[in-house]
């Protein structure tokens, strides 16, 4: 298996406070890795570093063989990365379909977008994905009218039509009901194999639904890595989680 995302000794120093500190891990192509850790462990900051939202002060990040450390976000995306934010972020004043159309753009340059139509295969793909996330009947509504869970799915759908090699998901089930969580895990399971995924999640029942491998972060550092069973019995992880009641 080839490595799709390689993180090598990455860290960031916020004026003396190291939110992420010499963190390393690698994800194989087509794998789904769950990133676990207590509040403040640096999970979201790590995602910021990978996606270029925050600049790293040490270490290197590679997509396939290409180093992308501290590139501008849009260039990292063009290299094959997609990200879903913790607080769902969609274009609220555009219709669902327009949201998807923006995400499905083939060439990002201004002058390449002076036509009004998408290629037919992209249009078909939008139809498929809208159906996959279960929003096909509401595609002409404004995204601002969606419920919280539906907004999450729309953002997931946008990621899917964008078709990045690597997908970062920051708490994709935050604020969802049980039924919604179940549907989300179905969508994510559908992505496995075709995309490489890194998912930050707290909900262990959800993690059991989707994960192959888990990596645990603690205070900005790598703590442990392994299958669910290994992590649940890992002494270091238990100790780190004692303060917050252990893994449930």
């Amino acid at each position: 298996m080839t490595v799709a995302l390689l993180i090598d000794g990455v860290g960031v120093d916020f004026g003396g406070f190291k939110a992420v500190d010499g963190f390393s891990m690698s994800i194989d192509e087509g794998e789904l890795m769950v990133l676990l850790g207590a509040n403040g462990a640096g999970k979201t900051t790590l995602m910021d570093l990978i996606s270029g939202k925050t600049k790293a002060t040490e270490g290197h990040i590679y997509i396939d063989e290409t180093e992308i450390t501290n590139w501008a976000p849009h260039r990292i995306v063009q290299q094959g990365l997609g990200r879903k934010f913790q607080i769902p972020s969609v274009f609220r004043e555009l219709s669902l379909r327009q949201n998807m159309e923006v995400a499905a753009t083939v060439h990002p340059a201004v002058l390449r977008n002076l036509g009004s139509r998408l290629p037919a295969d992209r249009v078909r793909r939008i139809d498929e994905v809208l159906e996959l996330v279960g929003l096909d009947t509401r595609q002409n509504e404004l995204a601002g009218n969606l419920s919280h869970g539906e907004t999450q799915w729309l953002e997931l759908g946008m990621l899917i039509v964008q078709n990045p090699k690597i997908i970062l998901l920051d708490e994709p089930t935050a604020g969802m009901t049980q039924a919604e969580t179940l549907k989300t895990s179905r969508i994510i399971n559908d992505l496995k194999g075709r995309h490489t995924l890194l998912v930050v999640e707290h909900d262990m029942s959800f993690v059991r639904e989707i994960a192959h491998h888990i990596t645990v972060m603690h205070l900005g550092k790598f703590l442990a890595s392994g299958t669910i069973a290994e992590i649940e019995t890992n002494e270091d992880v238990r100790r780190a989680y004692l303060g917050s009641g252990g893994i449930k």
Binding site: S51, A72, P73, H74, V77, Q78, G82, R83, F85, S89, V90, F91, R92, E93, L94, Q98, N99, V102, A103, T105, P108, M158, Q162
Partner: peptide
């Protein structure tokens, strides 16, 4: 118009 709505999201779409 997407950009006016949410510049961050737009840049993370490439």
């Amino acid at each position: 118009q997407a950009l006016r709505d949410d510049a961050n999201r737009t840049s993370f779409l490439g």
